[in-house]
């Protein structure tokens, strides 16, 4: 029990905070803890949750991708255009196309970061603007709306009373768990992120590992873009602006270390839920929408500061001991 507390302390703390917020909100609006509201929170955060898992993978390699919002918009629009053209009959193909496009864009980022040795934040700042500009140019800023057919049911269709988007999120979580802890490529992600010098010396390719992480993130963002098109039945080229901050926040709040080498899948899921619950609570409590950014910011600072504090304490202890 003590061990669980120690190794999963962050995750338990997040769960507790989510619960406490829930209880406080329930006293104001009893609707919060209803089954309907809980499933709606899960459904409302499923798309972000899927993409946050991808962001966690990239951060674990000690990189970051801030072009996710633009990748999202590109995939979202391409998927919607395909659905529009086919009348929504090819649901699976539409999702695969979106994921493939996202994966390619991610690989492009990964290749630049690995081969040119440019910091990821600079590379993706550039590609963010390139992709956003391209999608505005190609679409002339026009929306694609009125999506129809079986495709539009993909995200919202219920299985055992829960929306399909939530089940897809669960599947992504399980698959990522296996990749990260039970396959060699997952080990490589943790190794390269933790100590790239040592990783090269045990024969791990930095380039391949970066490509995998960025490609995986891209594919999951593509999946998010497709699900969003299905859920909202509309796509617009300005979609996804600001997503990078929310995704990075969710991963970091969850205990994934920005310096690389440490990932937490459960923490990332809880990070997304915490941000979602706070938004939901503020809405239910009728707090103005501007406060949501403030609340998100405070939580990020608290989470990161607690890490720094823990680090300083452990350093002092080591010096004393």
């Amino acid at each position: 029990m003590k061990n669980i507390l120690k190794s999963k302390g962050r995750e338990l703390l997040l769960a507790a905070v989510i619960l406490i917020i829930g209880i406080i909100v329930t006293t104001i609006t009893p609707a919060f803890f209803s089954v309907i509201n809980i499933t709606s929170i899960l459904y409302g955060n499923a798309i972000m949750g899927i993409m946050a898992i991808g962001m966690m993978m990239v951060i674990t390699t000690a990189n970051v991708d801030i072009s996710v919002g633009s990748i999202f918009a590109v995939c979202n629009m391409i998927c919607a255009a395909f659905v529009k053209a086919t009348g929504g009959t090819q649901s699976v193909l539409a999702i695969i196309i979106a994921m493939a496009v996202g994966c390619c864009l991610g690989l492009f980022n990964g290749l630049l970061v690995a081969k040119l040795n440019i910091p990821a934040i600079v590379v993706t700042l550039g590609s963010m603007n390139i992709m956003r500009g391209a999608i505005y140019y190609l679409t002339d800023g026009a929306w694609i709306d009125g999506l129809t057919g079986p495709f539009v049911k993909v995200a919202s269709r219920r299985i055992l009373g829960v929306q399909e988007a939530v089940w897809i999120w669960v599947a992504v979580i399980i698959i990522t768990y296996f990749i990260l802890y039970r396959t060699r490529v997952g080990r490589n992600v943790l190794a390269v992120g933790g100590n790239v010098e040592a990783a090269t010396r045990v024969g791990i390719s930095k380039t391949k590992t970066y490509l995998f992480a960025f490609g995986y993130l891209g594919a999951l963002v593509g999946l998010g873009g497709a699900l969003s098109a299905a859920k909202l039945k509309i796509a617009q080229p300005s979609n996804g602006i600001g997503y990078e901050m929310q995704l990075i926040a969710a991963a970091v709040i969850g205990g994934t270390e920005f310096s690389g080498g440490v990932a937490s899948i459960a923490g990332t899921v809880l990070g997304v839920l915490l941000l979602g619950v706070i938004d939901n609570a503020l809405v239910l409590a009728k707090v103005p929408v501007y406060w949501q950014d403030l609340a998100t910011g405070i939580i990020i600072v608290l989470a990161v500061a607690s890490d720094a504090l823990k680090f300083i304490i452990s350093q002092n202890r080591r010096r004393a001991g």
């Binding site: 933790g194 100590n195 040592a198 990783a199 010396r201 045990v202 024969g203 390719s205 270390e257 080498g261």
Partner: peptide, 30 residues
């Protein structure tokens, strides 16, 4: 490259174990 060297049976224990050898965030087995 290093992967090729290991595959062919050449192994190298580096000079600085903390920065070039160990994955400090992981456990002994890892």
């Amino acid at each position: 490259d290093t992967n090729d060297a290991i595959g062919k049976g050449i192994c190298y224990l580096p000079e600085d174990r903390r920065t070039q050898g160990l994955f400090a965030q992981q456990n002994m087995t890892w």
